[in-house]
């Protein structure tokens, strides 16, 4: 149910912007913030409830200092916004069955490979999307439609690379956490720790990353080349991390 304040916010004559325009502006619009682009996928009613609860919990945090309820609310809203809507057409990439390769040995004795769609790359090996070297994150976000039409580049990441060797750029999500700590999406150091702890038998020499916001059709066409390159690393098992 709408409140009086909500009704006034919807009055474009008063504010020049509808609430729908406001919430959609966080998704590649005037207020673009990829942490909150999910607002575009909500109804006005759902989004207004999100903001109401957000402010309510913020008010509580003044006294408690506890930010967990705020993060929990945003997390729940993401799930709500990205859930398939009733009556929406099925994805063309829906499968009733899937391939399955049994493991031949315990993971503790296996060599583990890694592919992430995080968009990490070596600073001295910029994939130069659209021929642009040094494209910034902001520029990548501005060109998200171009990324979604093109095939992605697969970047090779040495398993012993240092944090400063890497950069991350991806037009589809907020890369702040991945910039602070690559292990949130590209677990280079975590896999080294896992090997040291005996959880895995070893690591492939090279890992891989690409920006996952891409043309699915073009990706599928170049996949055989990727699979051949990944196989050269001779992994026994693969860890895959989508963003």
């Amino acid at each position: 149910m709408s409140t009086g304040g909500y009704d006034r916010a919807m009055d474009t004559d008063t504010y020049g912007e509808s609430f729908e325009e406001f919430r959609k502006s966080f998704s590649y619009g005037s207020r673009s913030d990829l942490n909150f682009k999910f607002l575009k996928g909500m109804s006005d009613e759902e989004a207004s409830e999100f903001f109401r609860h957000l402010l309510d919990r913020l008010g509580d945090a003044y006294d408690t200092g506890d930010l967990a309820p705020l993060i929990q609310l945003a997390y729940e809203a993401q799930i709500q916004a990205y859930a398939p809507k009733p009556g929406s057409p099925p994805s063309r990439y829906t499968y009733d069955d899937g391939p399955f390769a049994p493991t031949s040995m315990p993971v503790a004795g296996s060599t583990v490979g890694l592919v992430s769609s995080s968009g990490h790359f070596l600073r001295d090996d910029d994939p130069k999307p659209f021929g642009i070297e040094g494209m910034t994150q902001a520029e990548a976000e501005d060109r998200i439609d171009d990324f979604l039409r093109e095939a992605p580049a697969l970047s090779e990441i040495p398993h012993d690379c240092l944090p400063d060797d890497l950069a991350v750029r991806h037009g589809g999500y907020d890369v702040t956490s991945a910039s602070i700590d690559r292990n949130v999406s590209l677990p280079v150091d975590v896999l080294a720790e896992a090997e040291a702890a005996g959880l895995i038998g070893g690591r492939t020499t090279t890992y891989f990353s690409f920006p996952g916001a891409t043309s699915q059709g073009r990706l599928r066409k170049i996949l055989p080349e990727w699979i051949d390159r990944i196989a050269e690393e001779e992994p026994d098992v693969m860890l895959l991390v989508p963003l």
Partner: peptide, 28 residues
């Protein structure tokens, strides 16, 4: 979805895969 294609393609070659993803994408 991109990594889903990669996972299925790798698995079809006989290498076992595991995907780690956030709950917002569980339906994928």
């Amino acid at each position: 979805m991109s990594v889903g294609h990669v996972a299925r393609a790798i698995e079809e070659t006989g290498t076992p895969t595991v995907v780690v993803m956030v709950r917002a994408f569980r339906h994928v």
